[in-house]
Amino acid sequence: GQVHVGDTTYHFPNPEEARKFAEKAAKENNLQVTQHGNTFKVE
């Protein structure tokens, strides 16, 4: 799974890890998570 936060892309071998990371980043920054397959975008 990939997580895009601003201009930075994080790669995770496990989509579940990617999702947890995205949700945590979104919560900390008052942002939203959008999911496209195994790619998550925090914005």
Rank of each mutant, 00 (worst) to 15 (best):
E43H: 13
H36S: 11
K20Y: 08
Q2S: 13
V42L: 12
A25R: 10
G1W: 15
A25E: 08
P15S: 10
V42K: 02
Q2W: 15
Q35G: 05
N14T: 14
T39P: 02
K20M: 12
G1M: 09
A22V: 02
Q32L: 11
A22L: 02
E43S: 13
N14I: 04
V3H: 01
T39R: 07
V5G: 02
T9F: 09
G1T: 09
F40P: 02
D7M: 11
G37S: 03
P13V: 10
E23T: 08
G6I: 05
T9P: 03
A26D: 02
V33Q: 02
A26P: 01
F21V: 00
T9S: 06
E16A: 08
V5Y: 13
A18S: 01
K27A: 12
G37E: 06
E23N: 09
T8E: 11
A18M: 00
Q32G: 07
A26T: 03
R19D: 00
E16G: 06
E23W: 12
E16I: 07
N38C: 07
E16F: 09
F12R: 00
Y10S: 01
K24S: 09
G6E: 05
E16P: 03
E23L: 12
H36F: 13
G6R: 07
P15M: 15
Q2T: 15
N29D: 07
K41G: 04
L31R: 05
A26Q: 03
T8W: 12
K20I: 13
K41M: 13
T34V: 12
A25V: 15
P15A: 14
E43Q: 11
A25S: 08
R19L: 07
L31P: 02
G6Q: 05
E23F: 14
G37C: 13
H36N: 12
R19V: 03
T8A: 12
F21Q: 00
T39N: 09
T8P: 01
E23M: 13
Q2P: 02
A26N: 02
P15G: 08
N14C: 07
Q2N: 07
E17N: 05
K24P: 00
A22H: 00
V3A: 04
V3K: 01
T34W: 09
H11S: 09
V5H: 07
Y10E: 01
E43N: 08
D7S: 13
E28D: 11
E23S: 06
K41F: 15
T39H: 13
K20E: 10
K20N: 09
F40G: 03
F40M: 03
E16H: 08
E43T: 11
A25T: 14
P15W: 14
P13D: 13
P15H: 10
Y10R: 03
G1K: 03
F40D: 02
P13W: 07
T34M: 07
V5W: 15
E17Q: 09
N29I: 06
N14W: 03
V5Q: 04
A18N: 00
N30G: 14
F21W: 09
A26G: 05
E43I: 12
Q2K: 13
P13L: 10
N38S: 08
H36Q: 11
F12V: 01
A18Q: 01
E16Y: 09
F40H: 02
R19T: 01
K41I: 15
K27L: 12
V33M: 07
T8S: 10
F12T: 01
Q35F: 06
H11L: 11
G6T: 04
V5L: 13
F21N: 00
G37I: 03
A22S: 03
L31G: 13
N30S: 09
N14F: 05
F21Y: 07
G6W: 10
L31N: 05
N38K: 05
T34L: 08
F12Q: 02
P13K: 12
E23C: 14
V33P: 02
V33A: 04
V3F: 03
E28S: 08
E28V: 10
D7W: 11
T34H: 10
T9V: 15
K24A: 12
P15R: 12
H11V: 10
N29T: 08
Y10W: 07
H36L: 12
A18I: 00
T39A: 10
E16R: 06
K20F: 09
A26S: 05
K41R: 14
Y10G: 00
N14A: 04
A22Q: 00
K24D: 08
A25I: 15
T8L: 14
Q2Y: 15
A22K: 01
P15F: 15
Y10F: 10
N38P: 05
H36D: 12
K24R: 13
E28Y: 10
